[in-house]
Simulated assay, not measured.
Amino acid sequence: MTTPLQVAVMGAGAVGCYFGGMLARAGHAVTLVARPQHVEAIQRDGLRMETRTFDERVRLQASTEPAAVRGADLVLFCVKSTDTETAGRLIQPHLGPDTLVLCLQNGVDNAERLRAVLPAHEVAAAVVYVGTEMAGPGHLKHHGRGELVIDPSRASERVAAALGAAGVPTEISANVRGALWLKLILNCAYNAVSAIAQRPYGENVASAGIPEVMRDVVSECLAVAAAEGVQVPGDVDAAVRKIAESMPSQFSSTAQDLARGKPSEIDYLNGHVVRRGAAHGIATPANRVLWALVKLVESRRAVPQS
């Protein structure tokens, strides 16, 4: 292996723990910045990585403090889209001049928003394809996939090589914007339905009417993407099918958020398509219904039950 990277994971939930854990297993020095219950468990027992191919405890550093990113060559930025600017400001004083901040987030505009907060630092977008959840404090469960598509950057070749050697297939693409939109389309098709039903992808696509709803959602998304001037790569219909085939037991991140009584990222998923559609005069009724229903469930869960 070449010189190990110093890696920090800001917002180490399920996605950050997976990619940070894979790098740690490969010998890189990784520090997770996570919630207290995860930090305590990881400091005591290591990060349990229960994946499709191995189940082991990985030793790495963990902290609740954003200052733990100090000295990192690479920061995997994994906070929720709602927290992008706030988290960016928290790590800004601790970033080195050559640190690469790689956004591993849902939505299509997080890297742009983060660059506005970190104008003196290199920020690159990444598209994440992985099915994960935190099954308990310090316990990551992996349901499938685990690849990245990343922006070209000064350090992208080194980072991609390190990730690839760690078992994370990584592609450097000049069309990350298009790839982000493809991921957005997949999220719009799957996340809200999984959240409302509280069921995994495989069960949902086998339910009456749901494949037709998903097709309507995808059609609207593609119309908005075209109006935005986005070149969505590949066979979108095949990509949509592949999600349920490769991760049938996966609950969406939106479903996981609602199950835990946490705010979701739906405003940055179907809600983003609704807003951009309105800006272009494109009707998006399927996306609007799913966005509105998730917001309704969110508001209900936010009200204390008597």
Results as ranks from 00 to 15, higher is better:
Val101Tyr: 00
Ala126Ser: 14
His94Ala: 11
Ala160Gln: 07
His143Tyr: 15
Glu112Lys: 02
Leu104Phe: 11
Ser153Phe: 02
Val159Ile: 08
Ala135Asp: 12
Asp109Trp: 01
Leu118Ile: 05
Thr86Trp: 15
Val101Ser: 00
Ala126Glu: 13
Val101Asp: 00
Glu112Phe: 00
Ala116Gly: 13
Leu118Tyr: 06
Pro119Thr: 10
Arg113His: 01
Arg113Glu: 02
Val159Thr: 12
His121Val: 08
Pro97Phe: 03
Asp98Leu: 12
Gln92Ala: 14
Pro152Gln: 09
Gln92Trp: 00
Leu104Thr: 13
Ala160Val: 06
His143Leu: 14
Val127Ala: 14
Glu147Thr: 13
Ala87Thr: 09
Pro93Lys: 04
Asn110His: 03
Leu102Pro: 03
Cys103Ile: 03
Asp98Thr: 15
His143Gln: 15
Gly96His: 03
Arg145Gln: 10
Asp98Tyr: 08
Pro152Gly: 08
Thr99Asn: 10
Ala111Gln: 03
Cys103Lys: 00
Ser153Asn: 08
Arg89Ser: 14
Leu140Arg: 01
Gly107Met: 04
Glu133Lys: 02
Glu147Gln: 13
Gly146Trp: 04
Ala111Lys: 02
Leu104Glu: 11
Leu90Glu: 06
Asp109Tyr: 01
Glu147Cys: 07
Ile91Val: 09
Gly107Tyr: 01
Asp109Thr: 15
Pro137Met: 05
Asp98Trp: 11
Ala111Leu: 05
Ala135Ile: 15
Val123Ser: 00
Leu102Tyr: 02
Met134Asp: 06
Gly146Gln: 12
Glu122Ser: 10
Glu147His: 07
